[in-house]
Design a protein around this nucleic acid. Structure first.
Lengths: 152, 152
DNA sequence: GTAACCCCTGACATCAATGTCAGGGTCAAG
DNA sequence: CTTGACCCTGACATTGATGTCAGGGGTTAC
């Protein structure tokens, strides 16, 4: 099976499949003409990789536990590495959510103050607390990046 | 006042302050020797910019409404542009939170299944739903990026 | 004069998956 | 043989605030 077929059957782009191979997530035999040759197992594997990426794992993270689930889907959760990686990711996500919630609250405060504006209603503006000079910003969040850019 | 002083008093790095000037968020007069010269108002401005950035606004977004609040802190929320930008950002944040929550739930499901592993307990693995090939991934989130990298 | 700071500009690096282009093969159908 | 639809590799672009370095100059105290 050629790479274009795998792309159609998995939803991943040809570019992405080549990328997964380059970083070692999948392997492909080669035909005489140099074309990559995939089989059914590769289709399943690419789909699994896609799911992991949508969950927020990077290819590097996936590589650390993909060998645990390469053979049998039923053992996906039985491999310690998988569960460990999932717990780490879960914790990271919850940190990000907490950070977003903090920012959300501050935005809400400002907006609430804004609705009662008119003029000199707010003496010292609700421009939020003076954050410590050191503890700025939030960590970059992982997760898929290459598509549907520009949200806000 | 020189740029180093502003940095100390705002918590922003010298590099960042120069960046804010480059993108038009602040202006600085120049001394005869070419050094930037700042005043007290600039200190307040840089602090405000820092707060906005920590809230998740990009410099480009800040530029769209910074002129509303450049003079009087008390009118911060009185400018329509500010409130509009805040509402947009709020919506973006809530989208991101919803996305994170979705991923969190899927991770939890997998982990729950993992805790009841042992062996052939799960016939068809809880590897989450087969996402449509098109609607993959979540938009890149804005917000501060240059510090405290690598979280997960 | 020289060390020790400070300032300047410009450029490259970071993160990570993906898009996209250039330049070039392979192959089957017409 | 030509066209069209694939495939290949390699490279650059994207995001965006910030770090960091190179190369050069100013200022001040010794």
């Amino acid at each position: 099976m050629k790479i274009g077929d795998v792309a159609k059957r998995t939803g991943a782009s040809v570019r992405s499949i080549r990328h997964y191979e380059k970083v070692g997530l999948i392997r492909a035999t080669r035909e005489e003409n140099g074309y990559r040759d995939f089989d059914e197992a590769d289709v399943l594997l690419v789909r699994r990789i896609g799911r992991m990426i949508r969950l927020g794992f990077t290819t590097e993270e996936i590589a650390t536990f993909l060998n645990c689930i390469v053979d049998d889907p039923a053992t996906v959760t039985a491999c310690p590495k998988v569960a460990a990686a999932h717990r780490l990711k879960l914790a990271a996500i919850e940190r990000q959510m907490a950070d977003l919630e903090t920012r959300r609250q501050k935005l809400l405060i400002t907006l609430k103050a804004a609705s009662g504006q008119d003029d000199t209603s707010v003496p010292e503006a609700p421009v939020h607390a003076e954050a410590s000079p050191i503890a700025r910003a939030h960590p970059r969040h992982p997760g898929a990046r290459g598509l549907f850019r520009r949200s806000s």
